[in-house]
């Protein structure tokens, strides 16, 4: 059975999304670090059973605490999985850092730009289409607590592919790091 991992920083709504997708009842709170262990659930994508895993929030792939260790270990153990990177639309920078790390590890990634409502309230505008062009992976704006964008996310999970980090660097017109050890 193929696997979908929900990853992202803490308190970006992974567990809310998990509950929505898997019809599960993971504990959800408004403070970072509510999920300290992983939860598994099931969902159907295009007629196929898929295992979906809610993973503790992690700032980066270098673990700082036990919950982050759980997250990193989970990612390493499931090489072929699709990773849904959940990003808080009002804090895109931080979410992108982790997303890039996961992309560099050659996982199939799809980005869920969650909390679109919060970003809008804060007058932050995120251009999802441009982000998709740059990264080369699907980017879906959503509000998981209200279920907005959920259908699009599910229908595009299959489009998640591994991409080259070099390609992303080229897309923003940079040469950052390309010169080193080649």
């Amino acid at each position: 059975m193929s696997k979908v991992l929900l990853m992202g920083q803490s308190n970006v709504g992974k567990s809310v999304l998990f509950n929505r997708l898997a019809g599960a009842r993971a504990t959800v709170s408004n403070y970072p670090g509510t999920t300290v262990d992983f939860d598994k659930g099931r969902m159907r994508i295009e007629g196929q059973d898929v295992e979906i895993v809610d993973i503790p929030g992690s700032f980066s792939l270098e673990p700082k605490d036990r919950a982050e260790e759980v997250a990193v270990k989970m990612l390493e153990e499931t090489k072929g999985a699709t990773v849904v990177c959940v990003i808080d639309s009002s804090k895109v920078e931080r979410g992108l850092y982790l997303a890039l790390e996961i992309i560099e590890k050659r996982h199939s990634v799809i980005i869920a730009l969650n909390m679109a409502d919060v970003a809008k309230d804060a007058n932050i505008n995120v251009d999802a289409e441009r982000l998709e062009e740059i990264l080369g992976v699907p980017v879906v704006p959503m509000v998981a607590t209200r279920g907005e964008g959920l259908k699009e996310l599910v229908s595009r999970i299959r489009e998640a592919v591994p991409v080259e980090i070099e390609g992303i660097i080229k897309n923003v017109g940079g040469k950052s790091g390309t010169s080193s050890h080649s």
Binding site: V92, E93, L96, Y97, L100, E101, E104, K105, R106, A122, N123, I124, N125, V126, D127, R130, L131, I134, L135, I165, E166, I168, I169, V172, G173, G174, S176, G177
Partner: peptide, 27 residues
């Protein structure tokens, strides 16, 4: 598998967000 250093990665994040994120006036 090519891993960027943390600085390179932040640099890249910066470039991406400059193109993608517009922060308006906040009340």
């Amino acid at each position: 598998e090519r891993a960027l250093t943390a600085d390179e990665r932040w640099d890249l994040v910066d470039k991406i967000t400059k193109e993608v994120v517009k922060v308006g006036a906040y009340k």
